[in-house]
């Protein structure tokens, strides 16, 4: 674990442009000039609309994609420089991801016990008390080892698979966990248990989590810092309480207004239009020309315009 004031991970000016199509290439700017730091033992939530680049950021950190520009540092080491096989393996031992679609993650032909076996064999973990440790992490995520271990992935429900993924990451004792919509399929009651577990692990072991989510209430509940993305850019970031209590960017404001709240129905009159947001954001940038990213209070900054 790095010293407390050191960053576990640091992202600077990260940009990713996708090119698709050979003859008539199309360019998608998925991530544009994104910077943030992850301190040890903290949880950052990354929130934003569909297609805003959240998963792409996760994949860049995990070296599943190459950045078009910008750098990612893990404990002050440039991740782009981690290339030889041994180093890459070491990196993956410490930086792990759990992605949006639990069904695609597991090999459908492997039983659950095999999935855990593979972790031990391919990452060369210490094998002592292996069984006991597997049982412990399964219990931690509220899965019964006796029932789960002999099963194939397709015999499990969506939520059971997601918890299995979490158990796997816990077993690996990682430094940084990228959790992409990790709890999206869990009901409220199961979710809270998993989240509490995640928080405890962060606070006790100094693990850091980049928590990609769409659930603002849960984001508020567990994260120390909040990052808001809109169209590939980080439009607002900072201390969770500050961002939630004083949202400035029009996208952030809209987001907080759309949270489905039980007991209060969506306003039918104020029909929700994505174009409206586009328009509001455009106006906001126009009236704040030349300002760029500004810190409006300690640990809270906002993108006022595209310079």
């Amino acid at each position: 674990m790095p010293k407390n004031n050191e960053n576990m991970m640091s992202v600077k000016g990260l940009t990713k442009v996708f090119k698709s199509g050979v003859f008539k290439p199309q360019y998608t700017v998925a991530v544009k000039d994104v910077s943030f730091d992850i301190k040890p033992g903290t949880i950052l939530s990354l929130i934003g609309e569909s297609g805003s680049g959240k998963t792409t950021i996760g994949k860049l950190i995990l070296k599943l994609l190459k950045p078009t520009a910008g750098q990612i540092y893990y404990k002050n080491k440039d991740v782009a420089q981690i290339n030889d096989k041994k180093e890459v393996k070491e990196y993956y031992k410490k930086v792990q991801g759990i992605f949006q679609d639990p069904f695609a993650t597991f090999n459908p032909l492997y039983r659950v016990d095999r999935i855990f076996e593979i972790i031990f064999s391919s990452f060369g973990y210490d094998q002592t008390n292996k069984e006991e440790r597997i049982h412990k992490v399964l219990n931690d995520v509220n899965l019964n080892p006796g029932r789960i271990l002999g099963k194939f992935p397709h015999q499990l429900s969506g939520g059971q698979l997601q918890r299995l993924l979490i158990a796997r990451a816990l077993l690996m004792d990682v430094d940084v966990l990228i959790a992409d919509e990790l709890i999206s399929m869990l009901d409220a009651s199961t979710r809270i248990g998993v989240l509490n577990l995640l928080v405890d692990l962060c606070k006790e072991n100094g693990m850091s989590v980049l928590f990609i989510t769409h659930d603002l209430n849960l984001g508020y509940y567990i994260s120390d810092y909040t990052l808001i993305m809109y169209k590939g850019r980080l439009v607002e970031k900072g201390d969770t309480k500050k961002v939630y209590q004083n949202p400035i960017h029009p996208y952030t404001k809209m987001l907080f207004n759309s949270v489905p709240d039980i007991g209060r129905r969506w306003d039918k009159e104020e029909e929700f239009l994505p174009e409206q947001v586009v328009d509001d954001v455009r106006k906001f940038y126009a009236t704040n020309q030349g300002r760029g990213i500004e810190e409006i209070e300690e640990e809270h900054s906002v993108l006022f315009s595209l310079k």
């Binding site: 009901d187 409220a188 009651s189 809270i192 989240l195 509490n196 509940y221 949270v259 709240d261």
Partner: peptide, 21 residues
């Protein structure tokens, strides 16, 4: 119990730890 375990707005884990069923 299900309704009672819904995440409430504006609670942080350091202030109040929620629990499920």
């Amino acid at each position: 119990a299900l309704i009672a375990s819904l995440p409430q707005v504006g609670i942080q884990y350091q202030d109040k730890k929620l629990s499920g069923i």
